[in-house]
Every structure is written in C-alpha cells, then in structure tokens.
Design a protein around this nucleic acid. Structure first.
Lengths: 215, 215, 215, 215
DNA sequence: CATGAATGAGAGTTCATTCAT
DNA sequence: GATGAATGAACTCTCATTCAT
C-alpha cells in the first residue's frame, strides 16, 4: 500500500480571498499558470514574473493573491489533493480479503502517482528545500503508515500475518517501498510495465507479511 | 540490502590541481569548509563567500580550485565515498547463509548512512536540483539493485527463494525500501531503535523472498 | 564624398519596449545618460551603474530596457543615425555638375561628422572591440562606396572622368580618404580650417578623377 | 605614399633590464608569447596569466620584466618597428621620377602592412583605448605626412604638381587614404588584388597632384 | 483590482598584482 | 630569478517586492 496524503491542508490564505468574479478568475489563472510553470521549470527556476505572464496578468497582480512562491505552490498542491485521496479505497476498507485490499491500494496509489508524476516530483523537490513542505510530506506519509500499521496489526491478531513483525516498522518500510519505486518509475524513468510492477509489489507485501502461510 | 554507491567518481577537476604544499592545504581547507557550510546551511543557502570565509581564505581563492558550488560539492561527496563503500560486505559475498548476508548488508548500509546522514540528505537535496547529481544517484542505486537482483536470482535458481518473483523488480523494491527508511529515520527524525530496525528489515527481506520456506 | 551610414538599423530590442509613458521617459533618460557617460568615459570605462545614476534611476532599472552596454550603445547610435543621413544630398543627386555634387557630399559629411565627433570616435572604438559594430561600420562604408563608385562609373561613361581608374577601388580609396581625415581633425585634434579642408578635398577628388580635363 | 612609423620609441623600461642570460631568455619568451596572445585574443581579452602560460613561465614572473599589459605591448610593437621602416625607400628618395617614388612608397607600405596586418589592427585597437598609443600613432602619421608634404611642395615649386593644392592638407589626405585602405583590405578583409590596388593608388596620387599635366 | 515600471540588496566571478617560498 | 597561490576590489546581473497610476 502507499502513503496517505491525509486531508487537504487548509489554505491559510495570507492574502484576502477574491471577492469579485474577476478576482476569482485571476486567482484561478495564476494557480493554473503556476502548475504549468512549476512543472516546466521546477520550483527553483520558476519566477513569479513567469507565472504572472503565463497567467496573462501583470507581475504585480500576483501579490494580490499570494505572498510568495511557496504560497502559490501550496495552492497548486491543494488543487491536486483530491485526486490523490484514493476515494475507491475507502469503500473497500471493509473488504475481508487482504490480498484484494493490498492490490487495490497499490494499484490506486501507482495510478494516481502516474497521473500527477511531475507534481509529485516537484513536491519532493520542495520538501527538500522548505521545512513547511517537508513537514507536510511527513504528515501524509505518517497517515498512510498509521493505516497500514493498523491493518497489519489486525491481520496479526486474526492470525493471518507473521506475528513476529513489528507492525509499525513494517508499515513504514513497506509503504516507503511503494512510494520510492513509484518515484523511480514515474520520475526517474526506470521502465517497469505497470501490471508487472503491481503484481510484484503485491507479492512482496503478501510474502513479507506471510499472508498465505497462516490460514 | 541497500544502494551500492559504486566506485568513486573520478574528480574531473576543471580548475588546476594544487601544485604546492600550500595549495593542497588550501584546497583541503575549502573542501572541509564546504562540508561544514553545506551541512549547516543546505546546498542552496550556502554562499561561496561563506565557504571561503569558513576556510579562512579570500573569496576569490575559491575559484583557484573550483568553478562552482556544484563542483566543490562533488569534491565533498567524493571525500565521503570511501566510507560508503561497505568494504566488509564483499568479504562475505561468498557467504553461504543468505540471512547472514542480508543482515550484514542492511547493517552496514544503515550504519554508514547514519554516520553521514546530513550529507546523504544534502545529496538527496542536490539530486532534486541538479541533473548531474540526479544521474549520479541513479547510478549508485542501479549498482546496488544489480547486485541484489543477482543474489535473488541465484537464490531462486538454487530453490531457496520464491521463484514467482521478478528478481529485478523485487531487487529495486527492496533496495528502495531500505534506502527510504534510512532517510526517514536519519534525516526526517522518525524514531526507530537501530536493532529493531535492522531486525525488522531482515525479516521483511527474508519473508518477501520466502527464504525460510524452501530449505 | 564620404561614408554612407545607410538606413537606420532596426533596433532589435531584446528587452521589452516600454508600454507606459513613464517607461518611455525612463528609457529615453537612459539612452541620453548613456550618450553622456560614453562620451565622457569612453565605452570601456563606462559602467552600467554610472549610466543608471546619470539617468537618475536605480541600477537594476537599466536591465528593464537593455541587456548590455553594447545594446544601449546601439540605441545611442541609432538615435544619431538620422543626423548622419545627409538628407540634402539626395535632392542634389540629380544635379548635373559633378563638382557641385562632390562639394555638397564632402561638406555634408564633414559637418555632420563634426556635430557628432565624440560619438564617431566612440563608434570607431567600439568597432575595434565588438564584431557586431565592426560589421555595422563596414556596411555603412560599403553603402557609401557603392554610391561613389556608381557616380565615378557614370562620369567615366559620359567621358568626364579618367577612364583608366578602377571605379570601385577609387571609390573606396577616396571615401576612405575623407573619412580618415575627418577622424584626424575632429577626433585627434589636427587643426585644419573647415573651408580649407573642404576645398582641398574637393580639389583632390576633382584632380583624382581628372574631372576638368575631359569636357 | 603612406604613414611613416617614425623612429622606434625608446622603451622606457620601468622594470630593470635582465642581467643574466636566463633573464634575457625569459623576457624574450614573454614578448614573443605576448605577440601570439595579443594576435589571437586581442589586447583587451589577453590576460597576463595567458601570456605567462604561453611563455611557459609562472604568472608572477611577468612582473619581473613588465609593469603592465601596456608595457609589454609596447615591447611587442618595438620589435616590429624595424620591419615597418621601409629602408629601401630612403635610397630612392633622391630619385628624380616622382611616379617611381610614389609607387615605391605605396608598394613598400602595403607590403609591410600586409606582413604585420594583425599587429597593425592591434595597434589601431590599442590606440583607440590608450592615450599613449594614440599619441604614438599620431606621431608616426605626422612624420609620414611631413615627408609627403615636403615632396609635394618640392614638386609644386618645380612646376610639376598642381600649385593650387595646400601641400600639408593634401599630404594628410593622401597618406590617410593609403593607410585606411590598407586597413580595409588587410584587416577587414575587403578583397582587392595587390597589383590592382597599388596601381590604382598610384594613379590617384598622380592625378590628385596633376603630375602628368605640368611637364 | 490591474498594471507594469522601479527598486536595490546581494550573489557570483574575474584577474591584475603581490609575496612568501 | 622563478614560482604559483592568495588577495580583494570591482562589476555585472537577477528578481522578489513595492507602489504610483
């Protein structure tokens, strides 16, 4: 399974939210432009002026809605949050078959990672630079890990998973495994066919937890 | 097991190497100062002037030996290479007990990561920014993965590991798992006691490969 | 006669042209300031910061309109182009009296050279340093030469000029003669009274072409 | 005829002249290297360090013999002086045939210019930058002009040249004509075959002075 | 609200010149 | 004399941010 992005961080908008319709349009244009520019140039090389130009507004207008590059980046990230929330997953949480659950989680995570690969790389980059985003990333990972740890613990309790494993560390390790390989494949360009990747990750999870040996 | 840093990258010094004893001292002072400043301020916030000042030389002297921050960073990384080479590992490559081998590899990797944690984080940061270092990191990882894939294949052939696993993908996933958790623990500050961590990783490897089911 | 500056080189402004009235004022102030500073300090010793200060703007504002010293120098030169275009000359091109034509050309050239002497010297200096301006100067000279060569050829055909002369080389030589002496007088300070200079150059042209011997 | 370089300017060596044989060798190597580097890179882009390297000596050694780039440039120029002095010309000064005299002067000048074209361009460049060299160039030209003016005056007195010409201005103009066209051909690359050039210049001189009409 | 020009601190970089060895 | 490393003043250029219109 994979990192849980957690609930969308409430945008503590430092600047006022737009009140007019025109304001909404401008703000939205800026956020869209920022995503384009960030994905094209990376966070560091993206200039405020470029974002404004891409949005078709004057440079100064940027500051009507955002205080800094970090702030608009947060807005961009928030826009993508929903897509990363794996809504289908929740429905299956009641599912009794751990293998099906693992498959769904891995599949969902990899698909949504693929859809937003460029942005995920950006997020990684910014997390290396900015404490706020590092913390944000940590929180997402932690939520993920918590959920997986809970699942492992439940499986151990019902005698379906290796009882010797430390459930929290295992959850961390296995979540990290999926997150890392997604990064390698969709951002560094390592070529692994999708089905093959999902299948292997499922096997590794199942084996690691000894799911099939303790019926 | 964990990423193999591979052989030390030859320093393609663009500026001339020092020819006098004094020059050697200055160059070394700069590299040491750079490590200090990078670890303190991060790569981006480190200024050439600060590195020079920390080394006790004039700002211009930096350019006697290096062309850029990237170049001195490379020199810093190269200095640490040796420590990351796990020399003990090779000796045990002939070892017949896969569990012992895995334990040694994980243990070595985590220890050397811990010793150079700050620098590893820096390396990660720079790899997110600079293509040259991204590629360097990729190469290290690939060497690691190759070695692990070979081991997995051998174990499969001798009937001691799950034959259904794709050895290359499994190697990638499991190597990534170790690398990622090392980063979490030693750079993001997730608290996991060392022995506990090693033991759990060993278990996860052993389970994932189904080492104990095919005697 | 003398070098033809040719049509004004279109300003391939690399930075954006000003869009507001204020912007126009600032840009114009910079160009004026540049001329002042260049004429005072020469091209090499002129610093961007001095030009900005002379224009009464911040140093950084220079880069709103120009990318380099070369570029603002081009703008300065272009501003002076018009004055160097000898508009009166064209009107007399139909003139039938070659002596009057030559007198007009020499007189016009020397007068406009005198008016812009400092700038002409600068232009010469920069042409010695920068290929773009060397080429620009070459083009101007060539246009001049072409025109004079055409005149010589016509005079030869109508039997009014020495038929033994190579018209192109003669045009080059005589054009160069005027250009060079203008430089000597107005930039190196060789003292020759204006009328005397014009008269002598006219005589030399007339004699060199043998105008008065072939009626 | 053409600019007279005048007598070699005494090198007011600011640094001591070399006393040892080794010193002589080093100094000579520096001057030779300087010529190479100047001709390759131009005066402005030539760095002291490059000259020293080209000479195969340490950067600091430069200052054992020269105080500045200007000073070593003067040494380079002085080395070439002799070649520019047209020794053959003097022998023919007694020659009675003005046409032969003019031909010899133009021919000699153009040939020596061609031989040292790159250096002449350099000299021109430096004269645009440095007052000392501007003055040096002016003096050379003046000597040339004086000699030609004297010749013109003599021809006028003996009734063999146009008596209406101002001899000094004519000398300046015609000397400049040759100097300028030599520059165009050998430094700007305007293509004129040598014999054609000499012949045309001779004709222009002869015509301009009306040599053949006043027997 | 939008505009787009102005600001100016701050970093990188060069290289002539000095000087201890 | 020769070496080559150290110096540091000087200058360019960038761009986030402000602000008058």
């Amino acid at each position: 399974m994979a990192p849980d992005p957690g609930p969308a961080t409430a945008a503590t908008a430092r600047r006022l939210a737009p009140r007019s319709r025109r304001g909404h349009r401008t703000r939205a244009a800026l956020v869209a432009a920022a995503r384009t520019v960030f994905e094209r140039d990376g966070f560091l090389d993206a200039r405020i002026a470029d974002i404004a130009k891409e949005a078709g507004v004057a440079a100064g207008s940027f500051y009507t809605y955002f205080d800094s590059k970090e702030e608009i980046f947060r807005a961009v990230v928030e826009e993508v949050q929903e897509d990363m929330l794996h809504p289908r997953l929740r429905e299956r949480l009641g599912d009794d078959d751990p293998l099906a659950l693992i498959d769904a989680a891995n599949r969902d995570y990899l698909l949504s990672y693929k859809r937003n690969a460029r942005l995920m790389a950006l997020f990684e980059q910014v997390a290396q630079i900015d404490d706020e985003f590092r913390e944000l990333r940590r929180k997402r990972g932690a939520a993920f890990v918590r959920r997986n740890a809970k699942m492992i613990r439940r499986l151990q309790e019902s005698g379906r998973a290796d009882p010797d494993l430390d459930p929290l560390i295992a959850a961390r390790a296995l979540s990290g495994m999926v997150g890392r390989i997604a990064y390698s494949v969709y951002n560094l360009g390592e070529r692994i066919p999708f089905e093959r990747l999902v299948t292997t990750l499922n096997q590794l999870w199942a084996n690691a937890l000894k799911l099939d040996q303790t019926p």
